[in-house]
Amino acid sequence: MAYFLQQLINGLSLGAIFGLIAIGYTMVYGIIGMINFAHGDIFMVGGFIAIIAFMVLGLLGITWVPLALLVMLAVAVAFTALYGWALERVAYRPLRNSGRLAPLISAIGMSIFLQNYVQLLQGARNKALGTPPISGGITLMDSAGFSVQLSYMQIIIIVSTVLLMAGFTYLINTTTLGRNQRACEQDMRMARLLGVDVDRTIALTFVMGASLAAVAGMVWLLYYGIIDFYVGFLAGIKAFTAAVLGGIGSLPGAMLGGLLIGLIEVFWSAYFSAEYKDVAAFGILVLVLVFRPTGLLGKPEVEKV
């Protein structure tokens, strides 16, 4: 029981990170019907910017943890959002009217570019945080020599994810920007005719997705204490799987999918084998796609004749 509870906590924390990344995939897909395969690498860039900010803060001698974390967060979100905006501007906007394949190839190209760019600038070796800024936790229960730990980092991950999700749901459902995004999602040309600046709305969607990826990247860094230029690939693919699992295009679906992928991965490693945890996650994806092709919360597309 204690073991199970511990795995549940670990799974939820990992799943929350996947969920944050998955939202970026699902929002971009919702609005322009394209999978932004470079999104995982945007997440990686977010992590790197966070670690650079951390190092610089260390040099400046700012060690009070809450302040350091807030500065890291602000810097990571701002710069990663800039990367997201530039990505859309350079790689996708010029291809807006050229079918579906060209932006997809462009996305894969940007993904390879970002990995190599970071590898060249930051080196191919792991970057480690050194002493983790947030450590310790609460012992929830202690039974038969096994204690269930809820670390402060896990609390931060779960709480911040819940807050971000609530904020985003509010933003999409009630603000003018959110309404414009939903209008663009349903009929881009009509939205343009009603005076909606579609290009800006799409750019802001990328910026929003990248900001969440930056938070995820920073949280990942703080959670594992280590980051490398390749981390975005697998995390990105998992988050993409999460978005598809939850129903691509649906925000709550992305979050649910993320949590499920995190839980599946952790429980599989805990009870079966850690080597095959990716197989488990992707195996579940295959099953869901076979029996429910629109994902768990996706709306079936009704073709009217």
């Binding site: 933003l171 920007l177 309404r179 939903r182 939205a191 009603l194």
Partner: peptide
């Protein structure tokens, strides 16, 4: 129309330029 949005939302989207200004771009 935007079929998945409510009737009212369809009409409010059409007025987004005013709203965008008033909301200081969100």
């Amino acid at each position: 129309l935007f079929p998945g949005m409510s009737v009212l939302e369809n009409l409010v989207v059409a007025q987004h330029n005013k709203l965008m200004r008033a909301s200081g771009f969100t």
